[in-house]
């Protein structure tokens, strides 16, 4: 089937699927040799908006919307201000199957196995990950079980932390609005780690958890209904991604995780190493100004870095 026809069919299917808000995160997989999916959108802020509201309304992570809009006040963007919705991504390197969480990007990619007559696609969800001291581990594992309306049994370490802050936790938090796991949980092969919903949806896209992976309630609900137990899960740490879209090279940089203590020189080395790997023996003109700008202030948005001679 021709790629354009396939794309159109997928878009029609997505549009005809009213029960699935998460389908807004669906993107047809790019052709072999290409690495980018999605598109950048722009919306105008309303007088009463904050970037926090706009991010939630459009299912964008809280940190990524701030990164993508450096000149915009998070708490008072002002009416009419154009706000970039950073929904274009370079796919993380490595196998495109199952679940792939890129920690510094705070995004979870789901590559469902296409059924017969379906099209290969990827879903990209914003997530919250573990904060400093409670890092989400880099690992390869699998999804071992699913639980609807889970109870939360806070581990002793978390109960101790809460007790020290004068906010003691019960031994078990039953399902309901006070349950931080939300209404769905996917248990990973890593003991104690879950992918789950949340009762604090505005925290998605930030480092706020105790190591678990939090998703927006509508996203986890969508994923929960579709993902099979046994799905491979890969948690990676790729603050720098370089990829092709046709014959154009793109660079996407996210702030490295604080605990990695990556300074700007180290980040620049990483960026250039990735560019070298992507370019190989090809002759290409690189836009060093754009590359340096992304190193100096990572935007989390794919930036075109190949130019022409004239």
């Amino acid at each position: 089937m021709k790629p354009l026809y396939r794309t159109l069919c997928l878009l029609v299917l997505v549009a005809l699927c009213p029960s699935s808000r998460a389908s807004e995160h669906a993107h047809p997989l790019p052709k072999p040799g290409s690495d980018l999916v999605g598109r950048i959108d722009v919306v105008k802020a309303r007088e009463e908006d904050t970037l926090v509201d706009i991010a939630r309304r459009h299912q964008i992570g809280q940190e990524e919307i701030v990164l993508a809009n450096p000149g915009v006040d998070r708490w008072y963007p002002r009416e009419g201000t154009e706000v970039i919705l950073p929904s274009r991504y370079i796919l993380p390197s490595g196998p495109r199957r199952g679940l792939v969480l890129n920690a510094p990007e705070m995004r979870l990619y789901y590559y469902p196995l296409p059924a017969e007559e379906e099209f290969s696609q990827v879903q990209a969800f914003p997530v919250a990950i573990g904060r400093m001291g409670w890092e989400t581990p880099v690992a390869e594992t699998t999804l071992v079980s699913k639980e609807r309306n889970p109870s939360w049994w806070p581990p002793e370490s978390i109960r101790r932390e809460h007790a020290e802050q004068g906010d003691p936790l019960p031994a078990v938090v039953p399902p309901g609005p006070e349950n931080p796991l939300g209404r769905h949980a996917l248990r990973l092969g890593l003991p104690g780690y879950l992918i789950h919903g949340t009762n604090k949806a505005f925290g998605v896209g930030m480092r706020v958890s105790h190591g678990c992976i939090r998703m927006l309630p509508e996203d986890i609900e969508w994923l929960f209904e579709r993902i099979p137990v046994g799905t491979p899960v890969r948690i990676v740490n790729q603050p720098v991604k370089v990829g092709w879209d046709g014959d154009v090279l793109y660079l996407e940089v996210h702030p490295p995780l604080e605990e990695d203590q990556v300074n700007r020189e180290h980040l620049a080395e990483t960026v250039w190493r990735h560019i070298d790997q992507a370019v190989g023996n090809q002759f290409i003109v690189l836009d060093k100004v754009e590359i340096q700008a992304e190193i100096n202030r990572p935007s989390g948005v794919p930036r075109e870095i190949s130019g022409t001679l004239f």
Binding site: R74, G203, V208, H210
Partner: peptide, 15 residues
């Protein structure tokens, strides 16, 4: 002030 707001917001999102 913005930094304080950001930190308060982030902390309020902890479990």
């Amino acid at each position: 002030t913005n930094e304080k707001l950001d930190r308060m917001f982030k902390k309020s999102m902890y479990k």
